[in-house]
Design a protein around this nucleic acid. Structure first.
Length: 420
RNA sequence: GGAGAGAUGGCUGAGCGGUUGAAGGCACUGGUCUUGAAAACCAGCAAGGGUUUAUAGCCCUUCAAGGGUUCGAAUCCCUUUCUCUCCGCCA
């Protein structure tokens, strides 16, 4: 959600921003509605003030005055009720409109409708070269007893998998490596609830405009499964006022991610690139408003540090306006080289959501006696499925074994390769 | 899952239809006293929103959350959530 005051002050900038993001939202209508709301609010408050004044007179009033005051009070009450109903309906309409606004993009975000306009900022490492026929992660994984999607399909359907054996050890090695790196950076490891209330999910902005299609809903309990730990970490400080001295708050969430993948039938059906369930370590930061840009660069640098440790070839991409998610003001993706596909695929993402989520969450900080919305940022440390693909494919040897990156070896019993 | 008790300001704890936005205590802030500190004494001290140059004033809202009764609700009624005790179940 963006600030109505901001829209009022900069209507043209908001219009331009929406246009860049290919969102057709009526800014003028929103402003008309907002004005209507503030007029109504003042009317309601003034009626209430009158009603309060009358109620205060009654205890001391004479018997003869009493009846008159009470009927006057009744009248005001009825008038106030009428206005309140009107105000509530305008409020609902306005909130609905406001939540459809995307965040205001940072100046440096490239224009363009889709990923074709994304900017490759740098390429690190060279696409891996093999002097033998390259196998994809499924061939490798099945041969080594790491991945069994067929049996998973039998019990759960498509887009599920059994990770087994060294794949599991590799997952926990990645988790350990990431947590060691992140705690050194001041992150607090967090295992969050995997189910959150629809209220919390709604406050994170994931339930509007078709968002609910993507989310598993446990209807008996009105809980939803998180699609990323961000959805549990963001609402953690809902309705709280944070002490700026304690910022930034840096959280490293480890959790499964549950995704219905409703709109992706037939896309990436092979292997473990796109699953209904995968584990992920996610970075999440709350900062002061003027620190979020610096923090965003920092999150990206941590992602690159983690990648450098694994020695995988990747590139950093800044997403174009149309490819940037609604809550984000700027998003960088890290795309890692996938030898079997011969392309870079997204393995990491980091977004500065500025005050877009914190405004709905009412997560604020008090500075110089004033309340301001904190800024929130998120970034992938490792998404287990995709990083496993990259590791298996890039590190495969001619004999079908997989070299283990050096930083993971201490967590793999000191071994340097996975073999049959 | 069953039975009961509860939720009030930073903390503690009164209030149980009408100057109660909320007694008292602790903590905190300022002052007197003191070489300094402590103690004692005096004074101040909730938050959110609107209006405003204002962290002045004025107005609205807030005693877990939501709804209701009433001219008037922290106080009465309903619903929900959470906490505690006992029983049951369980990793």
């Amino acid at each position: 959600m963006i600030d109505i005051k901001y829209i009022r002050k900069n209507p043209d900038r908001v219009k331009l921003n929406n246009k860049k993001r290919f969102k057709d939202i009526d800014v003028d209508e929103t402003l008309v509605l907002a004005d209507k709301q503030s007029v109504l609010m003042q009317e309601v408050e003034s009626i209430r003030a009158d009603a309060n004044a009358i109620a205060a007179k009654i205890p001391g009033a004479s018997e003869s005055d009493r009846a008159g005051l009470i009927s006057e009070g009744k009248e005001l009450k009825a008038r106030s009720k009428e206005k309140e109903d009107e105000l509530a309906s305008v409020g609902r309409e306005l909130t609905e409109l406001l939540t459809s606004f995307p965040n205001i993009l940072k100046e440096d975000v490239p224009e363009g409708a889709d990923e074709a306009s994304n900017i490759v900022e740098r390429v690190v490492g060279e696409p891996t070269v093999f002097d033998f026929p390259v196998k994809d992660h499924m061939e490798l994984g099945e041969a080594l007893g790491l991945i069994d999607t067929e049996r998973a399909a039998k019990i759960s359907g498509s887009r599920f998998t059994f990770l087994m054996g060294d794949a599991v050890l590799l997952e926990f090695a990645l988790v350990q490596y990431a947590l060691a790196t992140l705690t050194a950076e001041g992150f607090t490891p967090v295992v969050p609830p995997h189910m959150v209330s629809t209220k919390a999910m709604g406050a994170m902005g994931y339930l509007q405009r078709g968002g609910e299609e993507e989310i598993y809903h446990l209807k008996n309990d009105d809980l939803v499964l998180i699609g990323t730990s961000e959805q549990a970490l963001g609402p953690m400080y809902m309705d709280e006022i944070l002490d700026p001295a304690k910022l930034p708050i840096r959280l490293a969430g480890f959790s499964p991610c549950y995704r219905r993948e409703a709109g992706s039938y037939g896309k990436d059906v092979k292997g473990i690139l796109r699953l209904h369930q995968f584990d992920k370590i996610e970075m999440f930061s709350f900062t002061e408003p003027d620190e979020s840009d610096k923090e965003h660069a920092h999150l990206l640098s941590i992602q690159e540090k983690l990648m450098a440790g694994l020695g995988l070839p990747y590139r950093v991409v800044k997403l174009a306006a149309g490819d940037t998610g609604s809550p984000s003001a700027r998003t960088w993706d890290i795309e890692t080289w996938m030898p079997s596909q011969g392309v870079y695929r997204e393995t990491h993402s980091t977004s500065n959501t500025t005050d877009y989520q914190t405004r709905r969450l009412h997560t604020r900080i008090k500075r110089d006696g004033k309340n301001e919305y904190a800024h929130a940022l998120n970034g992938t440390a490792f998404a287990i499925g995709r990083i496993l693909i990259a590791l298996l494919e890039n590190n495969q040897q001619k004999d079908g074994s997989i070299m283990i990156p050096e930083p993971l070896r201490p967590f793999m019993g000191g071994r340097d390769k996975i073999e049959a």
